[in-house]
Design a binder for these strands. Structure first.
Length: 515
RNA sequence: GGCCCUGUAGCUCAAUUGGCAGAGCAGUUGACUCUUAAUCAAUUGGUUGUAGGUUCGAGUCCUACCAGGGUCACCA
């Protein structure tokens, strides 16, 4: 009697076959999901230890005994001898299974195909090299560790003499890959590689800031007042406190309060949540890093940015020169620093300072064939020009500096006019990677900015940054002059792993509910 | 949310003008004691995303819905 699932699972033919095998294994007294496991070597260790012994003395190498574990990725049944490749996180190793070595009873499990590709097994034996030259385990003891009921997508691999691997068959349906990331990872080694690289990137970033004397901190994700960026929040509710809470859209305001508290340099790496559209570079939750450093300004922050990116690239890829989607990109400092005004002048041949009101600027954009929503604030129109004409050209790392004041409520004004603030964004491969300011620390000015934002967005459905009374209270105690900075970690990972979509650097990208 | 594209066997894909839904891989059965995309022989497998409609007849045409991708809007 086959196991009947009470879930939604309706086994297909292949799965029913495997369920029958499971039954037969149990009838033979074999536990398909045993508790105890042993392993002396990873696949990579077994192979490399054998090769090392072999290089020293061919005779003693044959005495290397190993117990390896892994998932069966290939079975080649050849009568009274069989081959398998098993794979663990370190790689693959071949098992050579012979009826003489294993005995009839165990060998029959393999011959009668009660053991399938995708099962986890444990194999003990001596290391040897086959006639065809592959380092293998000549197996004396073979155990099932975990039965696979649903076959993974089949991918066959041919390893060429020069080491290149050609894959035959693929698991490429993006929806399935994202919904069943476990299957994607199990089958696509290069996908697994991306997330190893992601972890390395995060370690390198932390190392950099730790070495620079920054303190890593953690601040609230559930916030009574959200702020620090222009985005719509997710709203949630605390039942017992009967309190609505927002999932943070940035860390900015909580981190800057810490400078009031006496820390000179802090950073945080964590998740932000923005209730907005989803695209190849936007996910509703994403990983952000922000830092705030006292006694510097946005120019000092630019220096840190250049050094950070060069350091991380070097640590993770071995070079400051990377390739992204076919573009050679050099991350070594210094990067060009250009004002937004000059950048737009160059590319769009419009000097927006000739049009210092929203009405005038909107008209000139329309006259030049651009289409913009009516009633946008002046700064947003400037940004529109930038995104239209400049952004697509910014392949090499570039600082764009001095942003319109009315869309930058936390940045200090420049000294040369009233329209701009000391803010920069940096672009690589046409992607905005991050955003930074000489942080505003005048509580009177900050209060006015909050009020201006509220006025500016009153007529639109945009949620303006709400006025944060506690933040102003903190600032009134005195906040040291400081430079602040934020960068999207996911985009950095995209850049350094040459992935085109943010979904490919998130293990579980957001998808609609499956029906 | 608007527009465009896509959805066929476990996976990757075919199917002419609307005319019997097919292949490779894997699976199943058999052969093989050094294979490695193993090979050879035979063979199973489908509510063509869902629900309607047009038609003698729909994978194909129409409508709605679901999901994914792209793009615009929103947004860093």
């Amino acid at each position: 009697m086959l196991y009947r699932s009470n879930s939604m699972w309706q086994p297909n033919q292949l799965e029913q076959d495997r369920l029958s095998k499971l039954e037969r294994l149990e009838q033979l007294g074999i536990e398909p999901y045993p508790r105890r496991v042993e392993r002396t070597h990873t696949a990579a260790q077994a192979v490399s230890e054998y090769e090392a012994l072999e290089a020293r003395d061919g005779e003693t190498a044959e005495s290397l005994e190993v117990t390896v574990c892994g998932r069966i990725r290939r079975v080649n049944l050849k009568g009274k001898i069989s081959f398998m490749h098993i794979e663990d996180e370190t790689g693959r190793v071949q098992l050579l299974l012979r009826v003489n070595e294993l005995g009839e009873a165990t060998y029959d499990l393999i011959k009668e195909k009660l053991i399938d590709t995708d099962d986890f097994v444990q194999a003990s034996g001596t290391m040897m090299r086959t006639k065809a030259g592959e380092v293998s385990v000549l197996v004396q003891d073979f155990r099932l560790l975990s039965k696979s009921l649903s076959p993974l997508p089949v991918i066959k691999q041919q390893v060429k003499d020069d080491g290149t691997v050609i894959e035959y068959g693929e698991f490429s349906d993006v929806e399935q890959r994202y919904r069943q990331r476990y299957a994607d990872l199990a089958v696509n080694r290069d996908v697994r590689e991306v997330f190893v690289r992601r972890a390395e990137i995060l370690r390198a970033v932390r190392r950099f800031f730790d070495q620079e004397g920054f303190l890593e901190v953690e601040t609230p994700i559930l916030q009574p007042v959200y702020g620090g960026a222009a985005a719509r929040p997710f709203i949630t509710h605390h039942n017992q406190l009967k309190q609505d809470l927002f999932l943070r859209i940035s860390f900015e305001l909580y981190l800057k309060r810490l400078l009031v508290g006496g820390y000179d340099a802090v950073y945080e790496i964590g998740r932000d949540f923005r209730n907005e559209g989803v695209s190849f570079k936007h996910n509703p939750e994403f990983t952000m890093i922000e830092f705030y450093k006292a006694y510097t300004d946005y120019r000092g922050v630019m220096d840190i940015t250049e050094r950070l990116l060069a350091y991380v690239a070097k640590e993770v890829t071995g070079s400051t020169k990377i390739t992204y989607q076919g573009h050679e990109i050099e991350l070594a400092p210094p990067w060009p620093r250009i004002t937004m005004r000059d950048a737009i002048k160059q590319r769009a041949e419009i000097d927006y300072m000739d049009y210092p009101t929203a009405e005038a600027l909107e008209k000139v954009i329309r006259d030049n064939g651009g289409s913009v929503a009516p009633g946008l604030p002046w700064g947003k129109l400037v940004n529109h020009l930038f995104e239209e004409y400049v952004e697509p050209t910014l392949i090499q790392p570039t600082f764009i500096m001095d942003y319109p004041r009315d869309i930058s409520p936390f940045a200090k004004k420049v000294d040369y006019d009233d329209f701009h603030v000391e803010r920069f964004e940096f672009y690589i491969a046409t992607m905005e990677m991050g955003n930074a300011f000489t942080e505003l620390n005048d509580p009177r000015d900050q209060e006015q900015r909050f009020l201006d934002m509220a006025k500016l967005y009153r007529d639109t459905d945009d949620d303006a940054t709400p006025l944060d009374e506690d933040y102003l209270r903190a600032m009134r105690y005195g906040m040291p002059p400081n430079g602040g900075w934020g960068m999207g970690i996911d985009r950095l990972v995209m850049l350094l792993t040459d992935q085109r979509s943010i979904r490919d650097v998130l293990l579980y990208p957001h998808l609609r509910e499956e029906k």
